[in-house]
Nucleic acid binder design. Structure first.
Lengths: 202, 202, 202, 202
DNA sequence: AATGAATGAGTCTTCATTCAT
DNA sequence: TATGAATGAAGACTCATTCAT
């Protein structure tokens, strides 16, 4: 049982290359989201980015490496975005905490779908996803305990799991192609506020 | 009643054949759940079912046909299972309605993962999934309106979307490989009861 | 530094398959000998054997596996062939020993070139080649010591290295496309007889 | 004088360029010897020479051109080196002729491996190798006839083929990574002396 | 001149599907 | 009917070579 050391994305050295890399990751994100990881071909990705297949491989030595790069970008954006939530959270009532968390999800919508598609298909990502989720839940738990000192660690942890699951409804609603996702998101805010309210009251 | 283009699974005439078909669908379900639709090969499926690849094609003329058969089996089981919910629902308080719905999900756990894997990958299934989900939501809306006559159709429909999304937390919890999924399911029951309670109070 | 376990050739289960496998190995042997391992494509090999590329991969899961199978066939034939030499060697004078060894090489000519082409290119073969050569030299040394009891182990070992190198001249002569290789092979017999004579006289 | 179709290496004008060209050829020689012609990439060669891929193509318009340049260098060195042998050969006994020829091979050891790797892989070289070998054999035949006037042209030619083949044992011994190649080279001297002695005695 | 990104034809390999036995 | 060999289109990836900077 050896730890797979797969070659990772190569840093472009010239300015031109950076744009290329971004375009390629974007193309990958779109296609992975649309058709799934396996069904997306490297040729397609290169085409959508307006590059030759060779150029794609110049920067990403394998399909998996591209997936990893995409995942990393998502993880970075998510972390930065959640830091803002933590900053604003202290002292807020349940309703506002719920809104903060829902808005956080809304902001990440774009990369989300692509990353989800990866998590079940790419070996390296499956394992990297769990700690990321754990970290997120830990941070949610902290926010909850800060808001209600009476909460035990275990209670906060369990509530954080539920909160994170409710948050997942947001991108799911977008995926249903519902004509009126907005009122549904409002309804989700209500759901989350209800639950957090209950947790804080305990 | 449905627009069928694909050749569908051939009905096995003998008892022996039925077992084999069931074994093949089971094998497909397991593997699709484990590795995803694309990553699973027909040869693997045949092997796990202890059949030759030729036999697999005897009953299912294509990979897609097998996927469809699996989906159909799931849809039938789900429909039958939900009928029982509808039977027991009338007159129940929010808490009990929530439990009924959660238990429904719990019972379907097995085929669920495999079917999810299909829904994003197999063309024919993507389209068949939506009406199935719509039907489920419609039936949930009916239950809600039966429990609260003051609910408008639109309100009930929106609430049904949220309820169905909350129900999806149940299989998701199983997937997290959490050591203690039980308390979390309890927490999910609480969440759903809370929301349904709110809806019925409106 | 892990030991590479590469999947090996699959045994054909039907009679038809055995002929196929032999034809494929033959095609590989020819092409490897003609153009070298790297320059030969799997498609070419399949074509020359009158098979589809998929059929080639049915039996040999990789180019390397085909190379290995070819090497194994050569090693088996060589071992069997040399056993005959050992049987006939005892009591012979230098001249006849030399002829026996040259004839041994002559008989192996066919697979030889292909196998040589592999030995520098295929990872797994490089390592398997050395022990084979060591074994051959050991058996030559035994023959020499049986013919001359005065020979020390070291002396016999050194002489065996030289003898085996002289034997390599035989296929090399064929490769020079000389119009008259026969007299040259006679000359090689003389060379080897001269050297073995000297060794036995020591 | 030669029929040149391929564009050949460009002559570098400055001193700096000459060093770079030498470094590139050296890098090529090392890598061809280590991994073979086909398995060596132009990028690798440039890297090992500490140059950019563009620089490599500045001097050698194709991989084949680099191979040719390497071959030419080897051919020049070999010719120069053999001239020294011819100078010293007249009037020597068999034993000393043998030593002269073995020492010649020993001196050329370095480029030898790389050039061997080319000779089977590069179209242009395959053809250029034969005349070179013919020339060498011709010069060996001349030395033999000078030492023994009784030798017919054909006899000398045949003997020269054998002598040149025996000489090839020298680099082969180095390749066997034998811990004690020295005594084996001594043994090769003995073999060659034996044969040349026989030829001169005829 | 020097650099390294861009290109795309060509390779190995996989796998759904067909078909002879 | 059952079997598994045969097929070939399609996909990931490589690398000699070109070209803009």
């Amino acid at each position: 049982m050896s730890i797979e050391i797969l070659p990772t994305a190569k840093e472009p050295k010239r300015e031109r290359g950076k744009q290329r890399v971004a375009a390629l990751i974007d193309a990958g994100a779109e296609l992975f989201a649309e058709k799934g990881y396996e069904a997306t071909t490297m040729t397609e990705i290169a085409q959508r980015a307006g590059a030759a297949i060779g150029s794609l491989y110049q920067f990403f030595p394998s399909k998996e490496a591209l997936a990893e790069a995409l995942f990393n970008r998502y993880a970075e954006r998510a972390a930065a975005s959640f830091a803002r939530v933590e900053e604003l959270a202290p002292g807020r009532p349940a309703r506002e905490l719920a809104d903060l968390l829902i808005d956080y999800k809304l902001a990440l919508r774009t990369d989300r779908d692509a990353t989800i598609a990866l998590s079940s298909s790419v070996a390296g990502i499956v394992e990297r996803r769990k700690p990321l989720g754990d970290a997120l839940r830990g941070r949610i738990a902290s926010i909850l305990r800060a808001a209600n000192r009476a909460l035990s660690e275990d209670e906060a942890a369990a509530a954080a799991v539920i909160v994170s699951q409710v948050m997942k409804i947001v991108p799911a609603l977008a995926a249903t192609e519902n004509e009126r996702p907005l009122p549904l998101i409002g309804e989700t805010r209500k759901l989350l506020a209800l639950y957090i309210g209950e947790v804080l009251r305990t």
